Amino acid sequence: MDTNKTNFFELVYQVVRLIPPGRVSTYGAIAAYLGTKGSARMVGWAMNASHKQAGIPAHRVVNREGLLTGKNHFSDPEAMQRLLEKEGIMVESDRIKDFARLFWDPAEHLKI
């Protein structure tokens, strides 16, 4: 495996582990925080690969519109929504309700 990709994935996982329960972030916000603004897709690949590891709340990462675009990478496509709802996040038609209020921006909350 490419060492640079492995290191990037681990940086993504470190940020994702900090997303508080009941909040969500986006692929793009995580990429921007890591200084790689154009690599939102790579963050998505990291999330897809994260299901093989414990302790990474991949269900808290959605696209910039609050859509559950990663749901098909869970063992059960409905698992992402169930996990979010268990944390009090309402989902309707695969979209986070009140997304703007629930959005957690690592650049704001982690202060590089």
Rank of each mutant, 00 (worst) to 15 (best):
A46T: 05
N63W: 06
P77W: 08
Y27R: 03
V62F: 02
Q53D: 11
I96A: 01
R95D: 05
L110W: 00
G28V: 04
S75N: 14
K37S: 14
M47T: 05
V91S: 04
N63L: 08
L102A: 03
F9A: 06
G55Q: 07
I56K: 02
I30V: 10
A107K: 10
L18T: 05
D98Y: 11
A32Y: 06
G88N: 09
A49S: 12
Q81F: 08
I89G: 01
R23T: 06
K97V: 15
A29Q: 06
E85D: 09
A79I: 10
L84E: 00
E92N: 13
A31S: 07
R101S: 14
L11F: 10
V16D: 00
A100D: 15
L83H: 09
M90P: 06
A29S: 12
D98K: 13
A100W: 08
Y13Q: 03
D105I: 00
A107T: 12
A29Y: 03
A107M: 10
M42N: 14
R95T: 08
I19P: 03
V24S: 04
G66F: 02
W104E: 00
N63C: 12
R101I: 10
N63G: 09
P57E: 07
K86G: 12
A31I: 03
A49T: 07
F74V: 05
V15H: 01
L67N: 12
N63D: 15
H73Y: 15
A46R: 01
R64G: 11
V62W: 02
T6K: 13
E92S: 13
Y27F: 15
S93R: 15
K71Q: 15
S93T: 13
G22Y: 08
R82H: 11
A54E: 14
S25C: 07
S75E: 13
K97P: 07
E108T: 12
E87W: 02
T6S: 13
Y13V: 02
Q53F: 14
E92K: 15
A31D: 04
E10P: 05
L11C: 11
H51L: 14
M90S: 13
L102N: 02
P20H: 06
T3G: 09
W45G: 08
K97W: 10
I30L: 04
T3N: 13
R23C: 07
G35M: 05
A49Y: 07
A49W: 06
I56F: 01
G55P: 05
V91N: 03
L68A: 02
G35L: 06
A46H: 00
H59A: 09
G44A: 05
L83V: 09
A100R: 13
T26W: 01
V12M: 04
R64T: 12
G38F: 09
N7H: 13
R23H: 10
K111C: 09
V61E: 03
N72R: 15
I56G: 04
L110H: 03
H109A: 09
P20R: 06
I89N: 00
N4P: 08
A40L: 05
V62D: 01
I89A: 05
P106E: 01
P106F: 00
L84Q: 02
P106G: 01
Q53E: 14
A107Q: 12
I112V: 15
R60Q: 09
M90K: 14
F8P: 01
V15W: 00
T3W: 12
A79N: 11
S39V: 07
K37E: 14
S39A: 12
S25P: 03
T36Y: 15
